[in-house]
């Protein structure tokens, strides 16, 4: 099953490689990993999208907790949560395609953020599936490049991690 894990860790050089190293050393899967400082500059928040059985996930959480620089770990998939990912996508857009791409972007609530006479660059946010769906809706030959941030996630409700 897919899990979204939130990790609060000391905002220190090396903390990121400790987490990444743990996943590779123990053979855990990483689908995506994002990290940035929080409102408290001494703390970073990392979101890891991973897959594994219940037993493996139990070990993933315990091993993360064991890292000295990790302050808190939570499997957001245990409860209701919101997941968002940012995608920047550059596509060929000439002739009739220009209108078609604009229409598609509107449907997916994307925004065009850069334009040339031959291309559009767009920004989209949403769940991973939504971003996948957008890419699939385009003619594969049109895509010039795609940059995705990986999932960020937060739990629903008033309580913090």
């Amino acid at each position: 099953m897919r899990h979204i894990i939130s990790i609060l860790l000391e905002n220190e050089a090396g903390a990121l490689s400790r987490v990444a190293g743990l996943f590779s050393a123990r053979g855990y899967n990483i689908e995506a990993m994002t990290v940035a400082p929080t409102h408290d500059a001494s703390i970073s928040r990392m979101t890891v999208a991973t897959r594994g059985s219940e037993e493996v996930m139990e070990q993933v959480l315990k091993q993360l907790n064991k890292l000295v620089e990790v302050i808190r770990v939570q499997d957001l998939s245990d409860g209701p949560h919101i997941e968002r990912e940012l995608m920047l996508i550059k596509v060929h857009a000439v002739g009739p395609d220009r209108e078609e791409v604009k229409r598609l972007a509107d449907i997916f609530r994307g925004r065009i953020i850069d334009v040339t006479d031959r291309s559009y660059t767009m920004e989209l946010t949403g769940t991973g599936e939504k971003l996948d769906a957008f890419i699939h809706a385009l003619d594969p030959g049109m895509v010039i490049e795609v940059v995705r941030s990986g999932a960020s996630a937060i739990s629903r409700g008033a309580k913090g991690i």
């Binding site: 037993e55 070990q59 315990k62 091993q63 907790n65 064991k66």
Partner: peptide, 8 residues
Amino acid sequence: IDPSSISK
């Protein structure tokens, strides 16, 4: 003392 040793 190490939770990760338990049920590993």
